[in-house]
Structures are given as C-alpha cells and as structure tokens.
C-alpha cells in the first residue's frame, strides 16, 4: 500500500512520460496502438519505474592550461615567485609535496587542496640564495665587524654579559608570541671581579641561579609584558646583586670560627695542634699566642701542605670514605709511617 502511494504521489505527468518512453521502446505496443486506436489503452502497472540513465553532458574546455607549477622553468628566480611569507599555495610550489595523516599503508594526500600544508608556517621565502641576495642588499648599511673581536674568547672577554631572547614564527592572526617577552641574562661569575666575601655573598644572594660547575650566573625575567622591560629588569637585578654583595654588615664582624661558611685551616685548632706537635718534636716548649699560631709558616714542616689540604677537604667537602683515606695518607706521610698496603 505504501509503495503505491509513493508512486502516485507526484502528479500524473511523470507517469505519462514514463508511459511514453515505454511506448517508444516497445515495437509490439506500437503495432497494437495502430491496430486499435479507439480501444482503451492498456496501462501497465510500472512499480519500479525503471528510468533510463540520463547521461549528463560533461563540458570540457578544450583550451585548459596545465598547472602553473608544471610550467615553471627550472632556472627561474625563486625569490620572485615567492617574495615574502605567505600561506602555502600548491600551484606556486613546483615540489611533489605530500602531507597528512592516513591509515597505515596509504600514501599521504598530495599538495593540492591540502589543509595540512596550509596550516604549518613555511619558510619558502627564506631560501639560501634569497637570504644571500638580501644580505648583499643590506650590506651597505652595515658597519665593519671590530677586528679585535676575532674569537669567542675575545667576545666573552669584552662582552661578558649575554642576553638571550627568543623570537617566534607564528601562524595565528597575531604575530606576537607571549614567550617572546622572556629574557635570560647569563654572565660568568669570575668576570665580575668580586673579592672572597663579596663572591660568597653574591652566590648566597642569587641562590640556585648560580651553577658552580660552569661558573655561570643565569637570571631569567618574564614578569613584565614587554621584552624591553624584562631586559631592563634583569640588568637591574644583576646590578643590585653586585652592589649588595660588596656591602659588609656590622654584625659580620662578630662571626666566630663556628659560624664560618667554610673551614679555614689556618684559623682552626688543627693548625694549632700541628704547630704544637712540630714544636714538641723539635724539643721547644713554648706557648704561642693565637696570632702567632695563625701566622706560623707551616712550609718548614715536611708534608704539612698535604695534611692541610686533607683536613680542609675533609671539613669542607664532608666526611666520606675517600676524604678519610686521603687524610690517613697525609698523616702517615707527616709522621713518616709506612703506607697502608693495598689489598
């Protein structure tokens, strides 16, 4: 029933047309038509309504041009074809590019109408010959490179402060990248020419920004929105730390040996006991004042230097099996005892 309704819903025009076609193709029907014209026409129930496929006419232009990329001369000036940064255009690039994710085993789609290729930023305007020619062009505005800065060492010597920033190539409507504002300042601590106290204080001030293995101080600023502001800020930080490091507070004079940051052998009991031992060995029994102990020249004692280093190492770099072993060796040398046998 439903089928019936569907077929008869459109007006009868379609039906008539169908019938006509049917007549055209059926020779038998024609003869019957001629035979009994007056007779009522036998209408065939055409349920499936077989339509003949209508061939759509395809219009082909005879004068179609080949792709522009195919017509490019191999020795053309690429800089003229792609003068500036531009979204990828397949007809302008004579390269067999393919890009895109496909299931395994298939080839990635070609360059035409390929959104993947258009999305990514490209550097087709920055080919080496173009860069070269552009450099040539702007050379007339450049000054000469100072010939004394001929090596990395020289550069580091004259310009110890290094400012590191990053520029970003960006494919969004805005050309600004927020990461571009970050400024990093790097300087070798040894170039700052600090004295012992100032150096120690500077290291304490900068904290973990100082790397003792490379002797580099790295200050990074990203708190201001613009790069120039951040640059000013890092410079300010370095200056402030530098000058603060030279300040000596009033209370620092009250420091005793126990408060010292590191073990100074000359100020400690170890030297006193060594000197006492030495004097006793020589058979002199005299008591020295503290200053005399400090200024006592230990170079007259044999092997005293090794002992001094061993004790300082033990105290400064912490107690471990190596430091104790080193100390044992130094003391044995000092006393003239046989070496420990290595098993």
């Amino acid at each position: 029933m439903s089928l019936f309704i569907r077929n008869y819903k459109p007006n009868s025009l379609a039906t008539v047309y169908n019938v006509k076609i049917w007549r055209l193709h059926s020779t038998a029907a024609e003869s019957t038509q001629k035979k009994d014209e007056n007779e009522e026409e036998f209408r065939v129930l055409d349920i499936l309504k077989k339509k003949d496929r209508i061939q759509r006419k395809v219009t082909r232009r005879a004068d179609i041009q080949p792709d522009r990329s195919d017509r490019m001369a191999p020795d053309q000036n690429w800089g003229n074809v792609w003068p500036g940064p531009k979204t990828f255009h397949p007809s302008s690039v004579p390269l067999p590019l393919r890009q895109g994710y496909v299931p395994k085993g298939q080839a990635p789609p070609g360059k035409k109408a390929n959104a993947e290729l258009m999305k990514v930023p490209n550097f087709l305007h920055l080919t080496p010959p173009v860069i070269k020619s552009q450099c040539e062009a702007i050379k007339q505005y450049c000054t000469e490179w100072p010939n004394l800065l001929n090596s990395q060492e020289a550069i580091e010597k004259h310009y110890p402060v290094e400012i590191i920033t990053s520029d970003y190539c960006h494919a969004s409507p805005s050309i600004r990248n927020p990461l571009a504002r970050i400024v990093t300042l790097r300087v070798k601590l040894s170039t700052l020419k600090l004295d012992k106290h100032a150096r120690d204080k500077f290291i304490r001030l900068v904290g973990d920004r100082y790397d003792s293995s490379t002797d580099l101080v790295t200050i990074t600023a990203d708190r201001c929105p613009a790069r120039i502001q951040n640059t000013d800020y890092v410079n300010y930080l370095l200056t402030a730390c530098f000058h603060e490091a030279w300040n000596v507070e009033e209370w620092e004079k009250d420091k005793t040996e126990d408060d010292m940051e590191y073990y100074d052998w000359n100020n400690n009991a170890s030297k006193k006991s060594l000197v006492n031992w030495h004097l006793q060995k020589k058979g002199e029994s005299k008591t020295l004042t503290d200053d005399e102990y400090k200024s006592f020249d230990v170079s007259e004692i044999q092997h005293a230097d090794g002992y001094k280093n061993a004790v300082s190492d033990w105290m400064n770099s912490g107690e471990s099996e190596e430091t104790v072993k080193k100390y044992a060796e130094a003391v044995r040398k000092l006393f003239g005892l046989p070496e420990k046998k290595v098993v």
Binding site: W277, Y327, V331
Partner: peptide, 24 residues
C-alpha cells in the same frame, strides 16, 4: 648514622686527637 671518625668523635674529639692516623 655514620661510622666515620669525625661524626663519632664530634668536633671536640677530632680537635683533641688531630693529627691522628685513622685505620679502618
């Protein structure tokens, strides 16, 4: 925590004995 002499002798003991020959 440690069996090494400086830890066990404290600063006082170390200074009292120094220079000594440690033998493990």
């Amino acid at each position: 925590e440690s069996y090494l002499p400086r830890y066990l002798l404290y600063k006082k003991g170390f200074e009292h004995l120094d220079p000594f020959v440690p033998i493990e």
